[in-house]
């Protein structure tokens, strides 16, 4: 499946590797986590209330729709968190009791 976001500039940055739901993805240094996840895919999380998939909205830290989990159980706001090599992100079931 193609991602939601498409690169049109600044594509010559060094690649970095992250894992999303156990799958390796390649992003670029300087990507936000949201960019990294949405160039590679089309989801960030599920709505808690059963109304479907979410993938952020405002991209400026206002709507809070893009919070994701790390495998280690931390929460990150994807649009304002820089993607770092080796990050292990979950978009599905949460590491929650």
């Amino acid at each position: 499946m193609t991602g939601l976001l498409h690169r049109v500039a600044e594509a010559d940055r060094p690649p970095i590797r992250l894992s999303v739901d156990g799958r390796e993805i390649t992003a670029l240094a300087g990507d936000t986590l949201l960019t990294a996840l949405l160039v590679a895919g089309a989801r960030l999380r599920d709505s808690e209330f059963g109304d479907g998939t979410r993938a952020g909205f405002c991209l400026m830290g206002a709507c809070q729709d893009c919070w994701v989990w790390t495998e280690a159980g931390a929460r990150l706001r994807a649009c304002s968190t820089p993607a770092e090599p080796g990050m292990r992100i979950l978009t599905g079931a949460a590491p929650w009791p």
Binding site: E48, F49, W67, A94, W96, P97
Partner: peptide
Amino acid sequence: TEPMPYRI
């Protein structure tokens, strides 16, 4: 807090 799956 923000919502989480109902466990508690």
